[in-house]
Every structure is written in C-alpha cells, then in structure tokens.
C-alpha cells in the first residue's frame, strides 16, 4: 500500500548524513595536508574507503529500492498524482491497514536493506584491516633491519 515510504524516509536521512560526513571528511583531509604535507598517514588514509562512500552504497540501495517500489505502487493504482497521493489514505479503514503495512513490511524492508549494508561495511572494514596488517612491517623485521 505504502510500504516504500519507510525506506524512502530512511534514504532522506542517510543522504543528509552522507553530505554532513563528506564535508567533515573534506575538512579533515585539508587540515592534514596543511599541517604536514610529508605525513605518510594522510597518504595511507586515502587507501581506505571513506565512510561517506560507504554511506553512498546505502543511499543507492534505499533510493533505488524505494523508487522502483513506488513505480510498482503507481502500477497497481495505490499511488496517484493528486492529493492525498495514496489511495488508501482516502478512508480510515484503508488508512489503518496502510499504517499497519508500513509498520511491518515497510520497517522490515528498511531493516533488511540496512542489515545487508552493515554486512557490506563489515566485510569492507575487515579487508582494509587485513591489507593494513599485510603492509605494516612487523617489529621483528624492523629489528633485523
């Protein structure tokens, strides 16, 4: 009925969060470069996938999913281009059913997409840590040198 609204609302929130995180990352990057341009840490940090980029994955999942689902609702005549835009919002019985669907299926959709994204972030972070560990020379090898 209107289950796509829940992930769409989450998409709005995550898009705003992405913009905020990206501006903070840009500021900190500029600060690192201006403090010490020879600092190798800033170069190493660039090898990692920025968190704003990871949030971008969630944005694509949520916007893409809710956009295509909105089309399905349009196809079935559940969304109309005139007020109140949702046919179920026209009478109280259908509105109650719609709210129930939003709180069950809609929340489930948003939850599953977020869970999958968290899995992607966890795998990405684990791979970054693994590559960091492979690149960093051990204490023993330093002593030998």
């Amino acid at each position: 009925m209107a289950c796509f609204i829940v992930p769409a609302v989450e998409a709005v929130v995550t898009t705003i969060a992405t913009k905020v995180v990206k501006s903070k990352e840009t500021k900190s990057e500029n600060l690192e470069i201006s403090l010490d341009s020879k600092d190798t840490e800033s170069v190493e940090a660039s090898k990692k996938v920025p968190f704003s980029h990871k949030l971008g994955w969630l944005n694509n999942l949520l916007w893409g999913g809710s956009g295509l689902l909105a089309f399905e609702h349009l196809w079935h005549g559940e969304v109309v281009p005139w007020f109140p835009f949702l046919t179920a919002a026209g009478n109280p019985t259908d509105a109650a059913e719609m709210l129930h669907e939003m709180s069950t299926v809609g929340v489930g959709m948003a939850g599953l997409v977020t869970a999958v994204w968290l899995g992607m972030v966890a795998v990405s972070s684990a791979m970054e840590k693994k590559s960091d560990a492979m690149e960093e020379p051990s204490d023993d090898s330093l002593e030998e040198a």
């Binding site: 796509f4 994955w57 809710s66 599953l112």
Partner: peptide, 11 residues
C-alpha cells in the same frame, strides 16, 4: 545497488 535494493525490498 539500485536493483539489489529493490530485490531486497520485494523479498
């Protein structure tokens, strides 16, 4: 990602 998002929601 767009298609995966829609697939997860339809699931």
């Amino acid at each position: 990602l767009m298609y995966w998002g829609a697939s997860l929601m339809w699931m």
